[in-house]
Nucleic acid binder design. Structure first.
Lengths: 230, 230
DNA sequence: CCCACTTCTTGAACACGTTCAACTCTATCG
DNA sequence: CGATAGAGTTGAACGTGTTCAAGAAGTGGG
């Protein structure tokens, strides 16, 4: 028996299992979206997917792992959605603003749910923590987007700062996400306003680093950031 | 019957209740310290305190509320411990560094436990969130410390920046706490190193704001910060 | 002293995430 | 085909945070 999975890979040995795995995940995500993470029980997921509770745990070690799986999916979507901007746009400001706005767009259906995600992610012991080793691939992929934002733009910077900047922009995105999670305005208007105002400011700040008196401090900040990395 | 409570207030009407409340809290904090937050069950707390589970819930709405109570206690200790520094020290850098280091000292016994605290605090719906309305008094008290750090120092700043700075320094402290929570080095040496390097940098950055070319950006940053406040 | 009234206390019961020993199904080999 | 190992699946059972109806203890007015 051979089945084509969603990822395009065919594997007769695990085909049945993969089908169940995907069924459980998609059911979970639907319920998370429909009634929130907290109100969705593992029993409800299993029920709705037509499997047993234990079966869900056979594929996903915990409820949090289902969230992790969602997060990976979201990140893939973001990477895809951002491609046209990175290809078309040449100026730094619209490139960065576009990438950040796209994050909001992609995550929009999961706004309520995101709070719980953030909660779990903030635990330093959780594999979902953006600083954890387990989430390094996802983080690296995200940082890579910002490296491309910079490299494909008109931005001129000192080498040391340029090397650090992708991670700094990733931190900026974390900040936007933190704000967004708390944002209760209609259509998350305030988060969009934050991006619209913050990005040009970042641009101006970066251009400031070329002023001689500012240069020294910038170097020291870069040094500090390097020193606190694990 | 009249009982003198720990807060020094006497109140015959609620004396008995207050005694139980304090018994439950102190027992909970001891167990949290001894075996961590996660491994401490509400049943264990009730057992150890010699009351029923329901009784613990009569005084503290949830396990998280016990943590909240601990956090308030911690904040009081920090406020007290910081007093000598604010009275003695006059220069900005040692004032700020002292306040931040004192936070590490006060929180040291609860380092393991802090991870869980952070996790809960990160949930925007939690009353423990540092941005929530419920924790406004605690936050205000903390911001007030940084206002005093600035006011009692030799720092000269533009009025608009000076007005915003206490909250910015509070954010800096949040950053230090975030780093500290993840810090696994012995004696949290890396967190101390972070403070030692970051504080002089902050000082230099603030002095930079007097350069004409930088001034405009500073004003805009202050404006942005004001605009994102609820 | 008694009676209503509030405050305080109890422990069984509930819903949830999670575990696990037992079972069924499936593919492969002689 | 039949046997066997592995993958997949089950649902009862456990420990947890939390709730709640019931009752006990304390308080104040008549």
């Amino acid at each position: 028996m051979e089945v084509i999975t969603l990822t395009g890979v065919t594997d007769s040995a695990t085909a049945k299992g993969e089908q169940t795995r995907e069924l459980i995940l998609s059911t979970a995500l639907r319920l998370f979206r429909e009634q929130g993470y907290g109100k969705t029980t593992m029993r409800a997921i299993a029920n709705e997917a037509g499997v047993s509770v234990g079966n869900a745990y056979y594929y996903y070690g915990s409820k949090d792992h289902l969230m992790q799986a969602y997060y990976d999916l979201l990140q893939d979507q973001h990477r895809e959605a951002v491609e046209p901007i990175l290809v078309t746009e040449k100026a730094f400001v619209p490139r960065l603003a576009g990438v950040l706005r796209t994050w909001l767009d992609v995550s929009a259906p999961y706004h309520e749910f995101a709070g719980t995600f953030f909660k779990t992610a903030a635990d330093p012991r959780s594999p979902l923590s953006p600083f954890s080793e387990e989430s390094r691939p996802a983080r690296d992929a995200s940082v890579e987007i910002f490296r491309r934002v910079i490299d494909g733009s008109d931005l001129k910077l000192a080498a040391d700062l340029k090397a650090e900047l992708p991670e700094l922009l990733w931190l900026l995105q974390m900040g936007v996400v933190l704000f967004w999670v708390h944002d209760q305005s209609e259509d998350v208007r305030r988060s969009r306003a934050l991006i619209d105002r913050a990005v040009p400011l970042v641009d101006r700040l970066l251009r400031l680093t070329r002023i001689p008196g500012v240069r020294g401090v910038t170097t020291d900040i870069v040094g500090l950031i390097n020193s606190i990395k694990p």
